[in-house]
Design a protein around this nucleic acid. Structure first.
Lengths: 349, 349
DNA sequence: GCTAGCTGCTAATGGCCATTAGCTAATTTC
DNA sequence: GAAATTAGCTAATGGCCATTAGCAGCTAGC
């Protein structure tokens, strides 16, 4: 059955077999409504030859000649699948897959970078095999992103990315609005003294976006902005709870779930229960989360939807000639949970 | 920054800029230990031009010229990610990703087929963009597999595949050995009357492999082969339990977890407890499994390892010129569980 | 001064396809 | 029956790169 082992037939081979020219084979194959016409007999002869010899077009040559490839590259700055990131990345991928399938594109997962993940490698990048790319990762290499942007290669970053120079396209979760809503929900529950806390330096974009939402909530209500505490590490939680008690805080907006968990434990030791004495909302970042028993009030990061949106955006920009940067944000669904309650009464202090 | 929007520089452009020939650019880029030598000054000039203009090689042209692409296609006969299959397919993908990364290959996920998944489409397939492919799916289209085999395109099927005509390469879980072991384990626990049961027609390869293991266990022990029951649907479980009781069966080898669950429930209603009165082992197929409370004795399908092995096999066959079909099987780890106990004593019947 | 050998580069080719200008033969128009 | 049109095809080109044969200029050897 297997003819000419190791070498697949080309259009030229088929042409020779069918007694036509290579161009005719190409025309039959692509069957456009272009000027050229092919008689049914010739067409059938060519198709028969293709079938008999198991002709399959060489996709590389095709893309070289034609341009589009209908392939979307997916590049992550951390290994996608390998264990640690599995739960984090998988929903993004899921969304991309779904949308790509609908838009009739395939996904090329760039995984081969190995240890030090970098897009460019000896002045070359495999990324360009695809028509465009979706970039992913919490700790991207900004230089490389800028270089890619300057190369004119179309891509969409999944996650909020601001770089120097010209802007890049991205899809971001709308942490700001969600944080604002959660904070206002605390206000609505009667909390007067609401604070924000995080672990780490808060320089990352997602962190800034969240804080911004927190501030907006106050501004919208015409209130004086509540305290924002930045802890260096989990060790400092005890001190944080001291401050909470001292300042009479009854509503806490916690950036990380880990932080919320620690606060809950530490507060418990002081006889403060969540949410009876202290309401806590969590801002969707499951980093280092340990337990899953508590049903935290907070929001979800719409990862799957972000994957879909990014894909849609990318394909749209591939279809158009306009290559200005685009941004889109995706709403974060609020999770009601059970850790935000009414302000404790009679707690004068 | 962005020069010549929409068009990336080619080697010819760089060559013109650096005052050399296109071939020189290519040589600098690839820097092989081939015959050609380039002086350091020229090299630097070229590299500088590449950097300045943001040169990136066109991967399609490269693969067209060079041959290998270091891309492995992944094709599934069912959508990979979309919800239902997620848990099923993900471990395979995980294994493929890991192995591909180690072997410095990228993964091209063919997802664009849309509703009716078929490899060939108007006489063409995008699969060949990759150097080879990994095929996946419980309900493959056999015609297409045969056609792909006949086309000479290298691929490895993940799962046991027998087709007509020439054989194809595959990696299969060793259901046979695992089933044999489990059955023998029942023997070792003293069970004299051991039966096999499944839901569905049992024509699929995995089903046949399991039954084979069951038979081998008996043969190895020189026993008369126990009954094999094939149920049409879950409805028939009550009847099955009747038969079990009537035949004095104390050890049951259940193909599907769903079946095991139903048997356990139905047996319970008759006052038969698992494993006190009836030992049940499950053959790794979680199809339709509902609950997870019971710690079934059975085996695991080593999906991740299968993904790795298939990838390794494929790359090895790409590296060699020999393209005969290869097979490999991966052992299924036995899960001790708690549903297989010693034969009930005094149960004369 | 002539040859041999080396260094450093280039011209040319091929890989497979899509596209277009243009050609031939058949058919229609007047 | 000549001119115009049309149907059906092909030759040629370009897309970007890797590879190889070979050329020009130089040095070393005798």
């Amino acid at each position: 059955m297997s003819r000419g082992i190791g070498k697949r037939p080309t259009q030229a081979d088929i042409a020779r077999l069918a007694g036509v020219s290579q161009a005719t084979v190409s025309l039959v194959l692509n069957e456009r409504d272009s000027g050229a016409r092919i008689s049914p007999e010739t067409r059938d002869r060519v198709l028969a030859a293709m079938r008999e010899w198991g002709y399959v077009a060489n996709a590389s040559a095709r893309s070289l000649a034609g341009g589009r490839n209908r392939i979307i590259g997916v590049y992550t700055f951390e290994p996608v699948f390998p264990t640690t990131g599995v739960d984090f990345y998988f929903p993004f991928l899921l969304g991309m897959e779904q949308e790509a399938a609908e838009l009739r594109h395939d996904l090329l997962l760039f995984t081969s970078a190995g240890g030090d993940r970098q897009i460019f490698r000896d002045g070359s990048t495999r990324l360009t095999l695809a028509d465009g790319a979706l970039l992913l990762g919490r700790n991207p290499n900004v230089d490389e992103i800028e270089r890619l942007r300057d190369s004119g290669f179309p891509f969409v970053y999944v996650g909020h990315r601001e770089v120097t120079g010209a802007p890049v396209s991205y899809v971001a979760a709308d942490y700001t609005t969600a944080t604002q809503e959660l904070t206002q929900r605390l206000f609505a529950l009667g909390h007067e003294r609401v604070a924000y806390a995080r672990i780490g330096e808060g320089e990352a974009q997602p962190s800034r976006d969240r804080e911004k939402g927190f501030r907006q909530a106050f501004r919208a209500d015409g209130r004086l902005i509540g305290p924002v505490w930045t802890l260096e590490s989990v060790q400092d939680v005890a001190g944080l709870v001291d401050e909470i008690a001292a300042a009479g805080i009854t509503g806490l907006v916690a950036e990380q779930q880990l932080l919320a968990e620690e606060v809950r434990t530490a507060a418990g030791r002081r006889g403060l229960a969540v949410p009876t004495d202290l309401s806590v909302v969590v801002l969707g970042d499951p980093t280092g989360a340990r337990q899953h028993e508590v049903d935290w009030t907070g929001f979800e990061v719409p990862r799957q939807e972000m994957g879909r949106t990014a894909t849609r955006l990318l394909v749209r920009s591939l279809d158009s000639t306009d290559n200005t940067a685009v941004r889109e944000s995706v709403a974060c669904p609020i999770v009601p949970g059970g850790t935000a309650g009414p302000r404790p009464l009679g707690r004068a202090r």
